[in-house]
Write a protein that binds this DNA or RNA. Structure first.
Lengths: 212, 212
DNA sequence: GTCTATAAAAGGATAGAC
DNA sequence: GTCTATCCTTTTATAGAC
């Protein structure tokens, strides 16, 4: 029963910033687990180890708290890609790295849960959905398109429409694996299955844009 | 103020089957528009033009009604594909037809809304999500895989893994268009944009499986 | 800033009349 | 089978003490 407990639970007497972080962490967990509608402010307060009134003191209302846990959490997809630009590596190896890290991130339980709640609430919070798309999928497509355009300039590949090609690559990569996990159908894919999907997507994009 | 009104609204005095249909139609509208949690039985009853008790008399509980409007509504994707099997048409033309009808169906507001609620509630109703996947996406992949395997046998294409190739084709087809509409980001795509996405996906799959 | 206690409203489900 | 009226629980949000 000490006076200081720095974990996510129990923020009694800690500084306000820590309390705020504890609330955000708890809200993330509860919202992603239950969805916006089923998540109660009581459950969030309890998970954060504070009273409900404290939650309201920090965030004002339920929708503001929801916005806070979605915003600013831009999926840090592919810090890889900018580095790939202008690199001299084999395109196949680079695309494989990009594909694997993209798919690994997408198949993470947290990413899937975040995707589910944004999809579920996109009509109620259209700006949140737009921000999510802008900071996540759109950024990934833009970055990969830049890389593909670079390969085209360097003569390694023939890519007439880089943005479309990038969207197709990511789409082919998601294929059925992402859909199954998003819907929670069946067991998680094995590492081998993921690797096979990446390899196939890379083969396909290379074949489609092979230089004549 | 007549005694018979056969439209979706007002089922007073009509036969039970019509009442049931009116409730199903209203429930579909309300659930797809608001999501499971935000949809109230009051709103459904009102939209159907009956009392709440009548809704309960027919379906017993909210979750049962939700199941009824999702189940049995298997997306009738691609009645095309079975017919394509063994056909002598140009594979490019057939794949273009398949791709266009698939994408057109997926971009329908009703399909998008149904997808959203199933994704949103897949943790609460896992069997419903499994049925949705089985009757929709999985069936489409299976059918296209059969067609691709047939093309491989006939020597038109070289498809080593038909199921993976089919999933990739549909994934590439969805690309960014489906994601944007799912999240409600930006305006709907033009017919030209959809046609371009289909054409690009067809080009890609043909290039990837060109016979050596 | 944080807590306990409470207000105020909404929604799922049921009872009983016709 | 259908309707009106009601119960009971849950939930958001606020008041007031420390």
């Amino acid at each position: 029963m000490g006076t200081r407990q720095a974990t996510a639970k129990r923020a009694r007497g800690a500084d306000p910033a820590a309390t705020r972080e504890a609330i955000l962490a708890a809200a993330t967990q509860v919202f992603l687990e239950s969805g916006y509608g089923a998540a109660s402010m009581d459950a969030i307060a309890q998970a954060a180890g504070v009273s409900k009134q404290t939650v309201y003191a920090h965030f004002g209302a339920k929708d503001a708290l929801f916005g806070a846990i979605i915003h600013g959490r831009a999926d840090r997809i592919l810090a890889l890609i900018p580095g790939a630009l202008g690199a001299v590596r084999d395109p196949a190896a680079t695309l494989t790295d990009i594909g694997r890290s993209y798919l690994d991130l997408l198949l993470t339980p947290e990413t899937l849960a975040r995707f589910r709640v944004v999809v579920a609430e996109c009509m109620r919070f259209p700006e949140l959905a737009a921000a999510f798309h802008r900071e996540g999928p759109e950024r990934a497509v833009t970055a990969l398109a830049a890389y593909l355009a670079d390969l085209d300039r360097r003569g390694a590949l023939s890519v007439a429409e880089p943005a479309l090609a990038a969207a197709q690559f990511f789409g082919a990569l998601r294929g059925d694996l992402f859909l199954r996990r998003l819907l929670g159908v069946g067991p998680p894919p094995t590492a081998a299955a993921v690797a096979a999907a990446v390899a196939a997507a890379v083969r396909t994009v290379l074949a489609a844009h092979r230089r004549d």
